Amino acid sequence: MIRIVIDSGIDQNDFMKETYDYDFLPLSIIIDGQDYLDQVDISLEEIHAHMEKGLLPKTAQVSPKTIIEAFNKARDLGEDIIYLTIYSQFSGTFQVAQAVAKEYGEKFPDMNIAVIDSKGGSGGGALLALQAMEMVKRDEDFDTIVEQTKWNAEHIQYHFTLNNLEWLVKGGRLPKAAGTAGDMLNIKPYLSVNETGIYLKKLVRGQERIYKRMIKEMTEGVGSFTDQLITISHVNDYGAALKLEAMVKAALPEATVQIFDIGAVLAAHLGIGGVGVFYFDQKPEHYVYIDE
Score class of each variant (00 low, 15 high):
V288F: 07
F260T: 01
T161S: 11
E285R: 14
S8N: 04
L242Q: 02
D183I: 02
Q258K: 13
A153M: 05
Y199N: 03
E140A: 14
D139A: 14
E103C: 03
I6S: 08
I6F: 05
N13E: 03
I6A: 09
I113M: 04
Q228K: 04
I6C: 10
M51C: 08
I290E: 06
M214Y: 00
V204S: 06
K102V: 12
S118C: 11
P189Y: 04
F94S: 09
Q157S: 04
A99G: 15
E217S: 06
Y20Q: 10
Y83D: 07
A60N: 13
T256C: 10
E195M: 11
K65I: 13
Y20R: 07
E106F: 07
H155N: 09
R3E: 10
P26L: 06
L44N: 13
G33E: 09
V5C: 13
G182Q: 05
Y158D: 07
T161N: 06
G197H: 01
V193I: 14
S118M: 10
D281T: 14
V265I: 11
A251N: 00
G120H: 03
Q34D: 09
E285A: 15
E245F: 00
L56G: 09
I187Q: 02
T66S: 15
L37Q: 12
D110M: 12
P189H: 01
F160A: 01
Q282M: 10
Y279H: 11
I10M: 05
G197R: 05
A241H: 00
K216P: 06
M16W: 06
M135E: 09
V146K: 11
M184T: 07
Q39M: 12
A49R: 15
A99M: 14
Q95V: 10
S43E: 12
F260K: 00
Q207V: 00
H159C: 02
D237E: 02
V100R: 08
A70M: 08
L25E: 04
E285P: 11
M111V: 14
Y190L: 10
G92H: 09
N163C: 02
L200S: 06
Y158H: 11
P253E: 10
I198Q: 04
P253Q: 10
G182P: 05
D76C: 13
S118Q: 06
D23R: 15
V96D: 07
Q282R: 15
P64L: 12
H155S: 05
E217W: 02
Q228P: 08
T180I: 09
F278E: 03
I187V: 12
E79Q: 15
I230P: 05
V115A: 09
M51D: 10
K53G: 13
D23A: 15
H269G: 06
E52S: 04
H286V: 10
H159V: 00
I198D: 08
L130V: 13
W151E: 12
I4F: 08
I2A: 04
G206D: 02
Q148T: 12
N13T: 01
Q39E: 15
I113D: 04
I4H: 08
